[in-house]
């Protein structure tokens, strides 16, 4: 089957889509995160109450998703910088994307226990 075009439906397009989607998600979280942190100016109790929701198992899962989005956006962002500023960047963009995904998987496996460990202990008992 022919590959279509150099860009459409290939690594370049899908990494661009993923970069947009993760970027928008991170921006919306950032907005909420500044608001919740602003509660330290209201009272220690108000802040601790809201932070308590961040420690629930369900939100821990969302945090894992947030870490996934941030790590992909960060690593792929470095790839974009390399494509734009490194003379051989465009030639190796595909290899760099697979490198990005490889590092991303390793980091996501590494984040499993620190981010989700407490949630697993809470749901299944320690």
């Amino acid at each position: 089957m022919p590959a279509g075009t150099l860009y459409r439906g290939r690594e370049g397009m899908w990494s661009w889509v993923a970069h947009r989607v993760t970027g928008v998600l991170i921006f919306f979280f950032l907005f909420v995160h500044v608001l919740d942190t602003a509660l330290v100016r209201v009272s220690p109790e108000a802040y601790d109450d809201v932070v308590a929701t961040y420690k629930t198992p369900l939100v821990a899962l969302l945090e894992y998703g947030l870490v996934a989005a941030i790590l992909f956006h960060a690593l792929n962002g470095l790839r974009i910088v390399a494509v734009d500023f490194w003379s051989k960047g465009a030639r190796y963009q595909k290899q760099m994307l697979w490198t990005v995904l490889g590092i991303w998987i390793v980091l996501m496996v590494g984040a499993l226990y620190p981010v989700l460990g407490h949630a697993v202990r809470e749901v299944f008992g320690s």
Partner: peptide
């Protein structure tokens, strides 16, 4: 591009401190 490079360091450091080191999210409070 420039802010992105700086943010990689700042944000991943932030995630390590808040979510990974020293008990992860459980220790966060006022």
């Amino acid at each position: 591009r420039l802010s992105g490079i700086v943010l990689v360091v700042l944000v991943i450091g932030h995630l390590l401190i808040q979510l990974v080191l020293d008990g992860g999210v459980s220790k966060i409070g006022f």
